[in-house]
Every structure is written in C-alpha cells, then in structure tokens.
C-alpha cells in the first residue's frame, strides 16, 4: 500500500531583508503588545506580532463608548490610547523579546517631528520592523491627515526614513479615492513595505436614544464586512508597487488569508477575529497550511503567483 506523504510547505516569507517564519501577523491595535493573548496562543507560532500604536508621549484616547457592533463588523474609536514609546520599550518589549517571533512596532504621531522622534527612539531597540501609522481615523490631528494626501504621506516617510534603523512599513488608509497613489508616493520615498487596509471610517446610530453609538461619533469599521474592499485594494496595490504588501481586513480563516495571498500579499494580518476568538491567529495559520498542502503548494511565493486573471 502506498501512502501519500505530504511534505510540509515552506511558510517562510521575506520582507525588506527580514525573514518571517510564516506570513501570519496580528493587526495593530487588536493584540495589545501580545501579553494578554499570550495566555491563549503560543506567540512563537506567529510570523510577527504587530503591536498597538505607540506615540512619543502617553495618549489617553477617546471617550467611551469606544466600540459598536455592526452587521458583520465593528466600529472602534479607541483613539490610540497608549502609554508612550518609553513605557513601551521599558515594559512591553522585554516581554515580547522572550518569544521567537518578529516584532513590528506601529508608530503613531500628530506631527512629522513626533513620528521621527518615536522612530529614533526605536532605532536602538531590538525591534524587527516599524509600521508607520498614517491612517488612524480616530484622532483629530496627524494620523490620517498624512495618509489621505500623497504629498503629506511622502514627506512623513522621507523624514522618518532618516531616523529609522529598521525597515519601514507604511500602513495605508482605505479612506481615499485612489489608494495606489498613496502607495506609489510612499514607495518613492523609500518605504520598505506597505500594509493595508486600516479601518474604514464609519458610523452607527442608536435610534432609541437618537444618538451616535460611539462617544467619538465616528469610528473605524473592521471585520468580515470589509473584506471585499480590503482584498480589492490589496490587489490594486500589489499590481502597482514593487515593495512587499501585508494584507488585512476581515481575515477570520485560513481561506480568507489565502485570498489575500492570491491577490499578491506577502504577509497577512489578523485583527478583529482576535476579539471573536483569541486563538484566531493560529487557526488562520493552520487553515493556510492545510490549504497549501491540499493544493500542493510548496511555498507562499507559489500561492502569490497562482492567481489566474
């Protein structure tokens, strides 16, 4: 009797000279700095932990309620509450360094100067990559104003690159007319990778109390409801730029991750699904591997190149 032996596929991916054991990462803001989820998943299994946005000084964030559920998704308006980069380096980084996973730090700011100073502080730490957050819809100044204007996006990347010792990935906003314009602009100023999509600006109203469900009135929509939009944008950006793309937006299963990789993404990030199930990241990873085995793929690159148009 012959037995079919399926060779385990090679899940490693490379982005900007950094090797990841697999393409599955966490989406910034949904996983804290990994500590809480470390009780539910073996962080060593993840390709990377992308930590919650850090800024130069501590930020208190927005008033509550900060979350509202919508059909197949959720709105959030946390407003980048974080203890600041110094506290992150002191308290959170040593915890993450115990694990055999890549660390990507999401960098937030209200001015180019602030972004640069955070990047500078992280330059001397054991962080593998930076993710420049120019797309948070929940803060009034900075953030998304850099992400919705190609010139502003280019200038913040250009300046941040001067201080960065790690590769710089730029997180793009879907709240633009043409996301490829922004992607091209940041690539031209030296972005080493792009990640997309951040949340879509949205709103929900409580009809009984006749008021917005979020304290901040508007917030960012995430979850399965946005997946088709995210996938379309990832596909467009992958065909436009020559730097690696990390795709995200509504990934809750291995099959969802496969769609993003077929669209051209090198990495995939799991966000809202963590709230539905704290073990979502490893389940997505298992699902991706099973798909590759069943389809006879031996590498992620093969999947990236497999789509027929």
């Amino acid at each position: 009797m012959t037995e079919t032996v399926h060779k385990r596929p090679d899940l490693t991916v490379e982005m900007a000279g950094v090797t990841f054991k697999n393409p599955v990462m966490t989406a910034s803001g949904t996983f804290g700095s990994g500590k809480e989820y470390g009780e539910y998943v073996d962080l060593n299994q993840l390709g990377a932990v992308v930590v919650k946005g850090v800024s130069l000084t501590p930020w208190k964030g927005n008033p509550t309620p900060r979350v509202a559920e919508t059909y197949g998704g959720m709105l959030n308006a946390v407003g980048l509450q974080n203890p600041g980069v110094d506290a992150f380096i002191e308290n959170d980084l040593p915890f993450l360094r115990q694990y055999d996973t890549r660390i990507i730090v999401n960098v937030s700011g209200k001015s180019i100067e602030e972004y640069c100073r955070v990047v500078e502080k992280l330059a001397v730490t054991e962080v593998d990559m930076l993710e420049l957050n120019i797309s948070c819809p929940n803060i009034k100044e900075g953030g998304i104003t850099f992400g919705t204007d190609a010139k502003m996006a280019a200038s913040v990347v250009k300046e941040a690159k001067k201080y960065a010792s790690q590769p710089l990935m730029v997180k793009l906003s879907p709240n633009v007319t043409d996301i490829t314009e922004i992607a091209k602009a940041v690539e031209s100023e030296g972005a080493d990778a792009v990640s997309l999509i951040n949340t879509l600006l949205g709103m929900a109203i409580d009809i009984h109390h006749k008021k917005p469900l979020l304290g901040n009135i508007m917030g960012g929509l995430s979850g399965p409801a946005i997946k088709p939009v995210a996938l379309r944008m990832v596909y467009q950006v992958c065909r436009t730029v020559n730097i690696p793309v990390v795709g995200m937006g509504g990934i809750i299963s291995g099959e969802d991750a496969v769609e993003f990789i077929l669209a051209g993404a090198t990495g995939v990030a799991v966000g809202t699904a963590n709230f539905m199930n704290p073990c979502a990241t490893v389940e997505v990873l298992d699902g991706l591997e099973s798909y590759m085995i069943s389809q006879g793929f031996s590498s992620i690159e093969e999947v990236q190149e497999a789509m027929k148009i």
Partner: peptide, 23 residues
Amino acid sequence: EERMACGIGACLVCTCKIAMEKE
C-alpha cells in the same frame, strides 16, 4: 459596566476613568 470587544484587556475599548495622582 462598559461595552467590550476582546474581554481580556488587549483592545482598550472598555475603559473607565480612575483617579491617580499624576497627570
């Protein structure tokens, strides 16, 4: 009570204001 998402302390959705000396 506050509206929650993750329930385990990671998402910072269900915050409340607690007194502290600084800031």
